[in-house]
Amino acid sequence: MTLEFAYYPGCAAKQIQREADWAARAVCQELGIGLLAMPRASCCGAVSLRETKPAFALAVAARILSEAEAMGKDLVTICNTCLQTLTHANYRLSNEPELLEKINAVLAESGVRPYGGTIKVRHLLWVVTDLVDSRTLKAKITHPLKGLRVAAFLGCHSIRPEEIFNHASNTSEGPHLERLIQLMGGVPVDYVGKDRCCGFHVMLSDKHEVHTMAAKNCLSAKDAGAQVMITPCTLCDMIMGSVQPIAEKTVQRTINLPEMNFAQLLGLTMGISKERLGISRLHIDPVPVLSSIGLA
């Protein structure tokens, strides 16, 4: 079975968090997952467009989903907020036929292919853990984590609301991210805060609070013994990484917890080079920790 998806990395991965995009592509290449470009796809609108123009937000999402549908591929993303935004829109458009009809009328009028409601929105993390055969995956993991204690920071927008994600994010075997850590040979660290908020979406309006949030969650993971933190979200990456040094000042405590995108750590375990994975772009240098297990 070949896995091919319409690839929707999200705005952050196209600009500030490019390393996540690089890592995703590198990992997919190793695993034989095809990531097809979506040249027409716009920004999903994130949480904000739904607030300013709720109908336009749905139309924007429908246009993105329609592009994937025209490609005949499910959509895959590496940004939690894109995931939630598109899943939410998809959930409504699939469950409310009248709404789909109205939105499609707008698309048609604007020269856009109407959306048929047939596309699944997936996170690359779910693809790797659910759709790739675990034996295939394990075979690719040539540099396992050797018991490295890894904090999974799940990110709100890939697990909530339950109504739209239900089984997708909540399996009996625990969160996808923790399963991946185990597959990579690491030990997931249980800590208070792993399912909480990075604060990205109030970064500009409630700066001080975001610093405190980042510090609390990182410290909680660190105090629980984490040596490195991974997230499935480019926005979480931005906060837990770049804000962490500032947050240290807010709470007046050294944190120094290396943080990276899940695809970067996965890439390292597959033996992909640090350069290709953009490890040097990380704000907290993971090399000292990684070299202890021969990964760097």
């Binding site: 716009s42 709720p54 109908a55 020269g111």
Partner: peptide, 19 residues
């Protein structure tokens, strides 16, 4: 296809939908 987005926007400004 950014013009499509502008047309969608304008269409909804002309005749809003309650979603």
């Amino acid at each position: 296809g950014v013009d499509e987005l502008r047309r969608m926007y304008e269409s909804l400004e002309r005749s809003p939908i309650d979603v």
